[in-house]
């Protein structure tokens, strides 16, 4: 299988006052295309930091990150943004829908960003597939947690990205909604032959991934 994402000797440190916190230590990770990986570990072990780096949302302290052989760790913010807008979809634990945009507008945003025609129609199709036909014009505050996360996933996969990063996607949901979200995510990567890197505390969900990685004190164990 071809390599999609490659992390080589990645280190991440934070300065807090006079103290340096080593969040990730010499992390090496390679993701192939059409692969699902779950990352598990204790709180503060560096799971979220790892997918932040994977999405090009944070700079490494040292080491290299490649996305399809392009070194994103040396790119500037705009260059990484260009790659991310087409190839990477992100799902957050807290959904993060734009509060004054309707469900359709939230999903259409990513399509519009990529200059695609008829963004609203495509967004509606996607929401319809996720069972949100009656929620097109609702604002996030008018949606339940599960509905919000479905809209968030629709937004993340609207561009059919090669990589989906999910940070505790079911962390704020009950078991029924968690199941529904997991089904949607895994169905998508199967259908579109995409890859998924997912941080989760939920072992049941973690076990659905092809590969499970445990992270402890900033190291993959």
């Amino acid at each position: 299988m071809d390599s999609l994402l490659k992390l080589k000797n990645v280190n991440l440190k934070y300065l807090t006052g006079n103290d340096t916190i080593k969040v990730l230590k010499n992390v090496n990770l390679e993701t192939k295309k059409n692969e699902s990986i779950s990352i598990v570990g204790e709180s503060g072990s560096g799971k979220t930091s790892l997918i932040m780096l994977a999405g090009g949302l944070e700079k490494t302290t040292s080491g290299k990150i490649f996305f399809e052989d392009q070194e994103i760790s040396k790119m500037n913010e705009d260059e990484v943004s260009k790659i991310r807008r087409k190839n990477i979809g992100i799902v957050f634990q807290s959904f993060y829908l734009i509060p004054n945009y309707t469900a359709v507008e939230n999903v259409a945003l990513t399509l519009e960003l990529n200059n695609l025609k008829n963004p609203n129609e495509r967004a509606k199709e996607l929401l319809d597939r996720f069972g949100l036909k009656n929620r097109f014009n609702n604002l996030p505050s008018q949606l339940s947690g599960g509905e919000q996360q479905r809209v968030a996933i629709a937004r993340a996969i609207a561009m059919k990205p090669k990589l989906v990063l999910a940070d505790e996607p079911t962390g704020n949901l009950d078991s029924e909604n968690s199941q529904m979200i997991a089904d949607i995510l895994f169905k998508y990567i199967k259908e579109e032959k995409s890859s998924l890197i997912m941080v989760t505390h939920d072992l049941k969900l973690a076990n659905k991934a092809k590969r499970k990685i445990k992270i402890k004190d900033g190291k993959i164990v």
Partner: peptide, 12 residues
């Protein structure tokens, strides 16, 4: 938050 979301989607 909205701005951060837009940035996460790839907006410059």
């Amino acid at each position: 938050m909205s701005i951060a979301v837009k940035k996460s989607l790839g907006f410059f």
